[in-house]
Design a protein around this nucleic acid. Structure first.
Length: 578
RNA sequence: GGUCCGUUAGCUCAGCUGGAUAGAGCGCUGCCCUCCGAAGGCAGAGGCCAGAGGUUCGAAUCCUCUACGGACCGCCA
């Protein structure tokens, strides 16, 4: 049940009637007609722009259309007032019973209230994290992980068939570096002195990996050249790193549906296939790129390469798929990987990258557009930097100084719920401040706490109530007993939930959920506070079971929606505050 | 030099894809709370939506240019 959609449908019906009566010409495009909450609640419960949208194509005065439409809408039992305002807005007030009915509906639907069939079961892939398997995840990855996971849940809630995937970059030179680094730790485990030169990973996290390798193979690799051990150690080490990463993700409650190995593409013919497919479309050629404008790299010299004509799909320059020595660039397996996504039958793709990958957006979109004949849309969401603060002062990360902050450091300090919620209180493309002290503060300033507190507070009322508080009973409560203007305001906030889910899902913007939850919590706390002055607004009305039940039904409905929203964000609703 | 992102109250940020008098929290100012629901509550001040053009019934939102801040910019992943 979506009250806004219901009323929009009613507007459509009324327009049909007007057309049939000859008041309006037929065949007008109605797609731009919206039914929304007005910015100022004093204008009513809902407003439609129908008259203004239709005025031009109908060659009629918007106010004339609005007045005819208002008369028609007024005939519906749900509408108490429909009046024309300003240039042709149509403001409507709804019968209190509509809001009361909504509460019953929320309680019988539970988490299904707000679910949408917007996605119509379309297959959608969200690729996220995809960090190189060379070490534990750090703070930057954390934001991408949380964002991607919440986005996936949101799309699932909005009716898409979602697959969560991690692309393992295990095919490039960085995993050779990893293997060499682990080998050094392996020698160390055998009691040798080793030096970590530039270009190796000196992190402590590889010590147990070197030890485990020793336990597994003994001294088989000691004193041997790379040709004997590199491949084995590489595989062993990347597996170990992926175990580490999986555990990191699990600490945030993230579980991928699948992991896709870049390495598996090499030698399988898939890269060749993908490039050949582009070639057949006339998009592959041999050529030499112009030098980059502005700052010229010192060792730049023109070289002929195999290029993808990404400019045919909006990129700024064509991109190399083969290096001058004939080996694939990193871009080639990426193309093959995305081709594979298309071939697996996904209707739409989303990639979540860190902002430092912003330069690859156009070429990746170009590749997918070319490979899917522009049938499969690819949206790329970039997550901006996380700025860490401790005691109010910026906290600089440095590998060298040992102040490198991992995902695990953050989760261990503030917990998964706080981390996840806070990371979603900002748009993905705006930088985010993360203050270790502020995010755990128990005050109204902290949205995480404020939303959780609302949920817990409702629990506390439910515990104290001396009436039946199961949802089935509450759903049957006489809501006319909780129809004070302040209470209707809360019900109206609940009515916006399904609409908000669709808006957030369409825009791929999970942060909207977090902001909505804050607003809803704020409505609830506001109602609670009014009960301090006006005892008739308190939820527990001694000696009046029917009224108490109606009031509890209202706040229990709030709790249902809070729980649904928190569920999308991957945050556990708090049962009580410590 | 180019591309992408950002610029909204003193500060940190929302703004429902073009709607009415642009919102929230913090901070500030003034009231209220010392028994029953204050890990606070109520009210107020505070804005040329970076700037300039354009598009139309209507622009913080769309287009162009400019300024400032950030990220990235053959053959590293």
């Amino acid at each position: 049940m979506n009250v806004f959609a219901d009323i929009r449908a009613l507007v459509m019906t009324c327009l049909d009637t007007l057309e049939a009566a000859g008041t309006l010409p037929g065949g007008l495009n109605r797609s731009a007609i919206t039914v929304e909450p007005p910015r100022d609640a004093a204008h009513g419960d809902m407003a439609t722009n129908a008259a203004m949208v239709l005025a031009k194509p109908a060659k009629m005065n918007p106010r004339a259309i609005a007045e005819a439409l208002a008369a028609e809408l007024g005939k519906d039992a749900r509408i108490t007032v429909a009046e024309v305002a300003g240039p042709g807005f149509l403001n409507m007030r709804l019968e209190a019973a509509v809001w009361g009915g909504l509460i019953g509906h929320v309680l019988t639907s539970s988490v299904a209230y707000g679910r949408s069939d917007l996605g119509k079961g379309q297959k959608m892939m969200v690729e996220y994290v995809s960090a190189n398997p060379t070490g534990p995840l750090h703070v930057g990855h954390t934001r991408g992980a949380v964002f991607g996971d919440a986005l996936a849940s949101l799309l699932d809630y909005a009716g898409y068939d979602v697959t969560r995937e991690y692309y393992i970059n295990d095919g490039g030179a960085q995993v050779d570096v990893l293997a060499r680094s682990v080998y050094l730790r392996y020698l160390e485990a055998h009691g040798q002195e080793v030096a970590f030169e530039d270009g190796t990973y000196p992190g402590d996290y590889l010590i147990p990996v070197g030890q485990a390798l020793k336990d597994k193979v003994g001294d088989a690799y000691v004193g041997k050249g790379e040709q004997f051990w590199l491949e084995d150690v590489r595989e062993y080490a990347t597996d170990a790193m992926m175990d580490l990463i999986r555990a990191d993700l699990a600490s945030l409650g993230i579980e991928m549906d699948s992991f896709y190995s870049e390495k598996s593409l090499y030698g399988s013919g898939r890269i060749e296939d993908a490039i050949q497919t582009l070639d057949q479309k006339g998009l592959i050629y041999r050529g030499t790129l112009e030098p980059p404008k502005g700052k010229m790299p010192e060792d730049w010299e023109p070289r002929e390469q195999t290029l993808f004509k990404s400019t045919a799909y909006g990129d700024d320059v064509d991109r190399p798929v083969k290096k001058s020595d004939g080996a694939w660039t990193y871009f080639a397996p990426d193309i093959a990987y995305h081709y594979d996504k298309v071939e697996r039958g996904f209707d739409a793709l989303i990639d979540v990258f860190g902002a430092d990958h912003g330069g690859y957006v156009k070429r990746m979109k170009a590749a997918v557009a070319a490979l899917s004949d522009e049938k499969v849309p690819l949206d790329i969401k970039l997550t901006q930097l996380v700025k860490l603060f401790k005691d109010g002062a910026p906290f600089k990360m440095s590998k060298r100084a040992g102040t490198f902050v991992t995902l695990r450091d953050v989760v261990d300090q503030v917990g998964s719920d706080v981390t996840r919620f806070h990371m979603l209180t900002r748009k993905n493309d705006a930088p985010l401040d993360f203050d270790f002290d502020k995010v755990t503060e128990q005050s109204k300033d902290n949205p995480v706490f404020y939303v959780q507190y609302a949920h817990a507070r409702i629990n506390s009322v439910l515990r104290k109530a001396e009436v039946a508080v199961d949802d089935a009973t509450l759903a049957g409560a006489d809501m006319s007993l909780a129809a004070h203007e302040a209470e209707l305001k809360v019900a109206k906030a609940l009515a916006e939930w399904p609409r908000l889910v669709e808006i957030a899902a369409k825009g791929h913007e999970p942060h909207r959920i977090a902001f909505y939850l804050y607003d809803l919590a704020s409505e609830f706390h506001g109602l609670w506070n009014r009960g301090n002055d006006d005892t008739s607004l308190r939820f527990l009305q001694e000696g009046d079971k029917a009224t108490t039940q109606a009031k509890i039904a209202l706040i229990r409905a709030v709790q249902v929606v809070l729980a649904s929203g928190l569920g999308i964000l991957g945050v556990t609703p708090a049962e009580e505050m410590r």
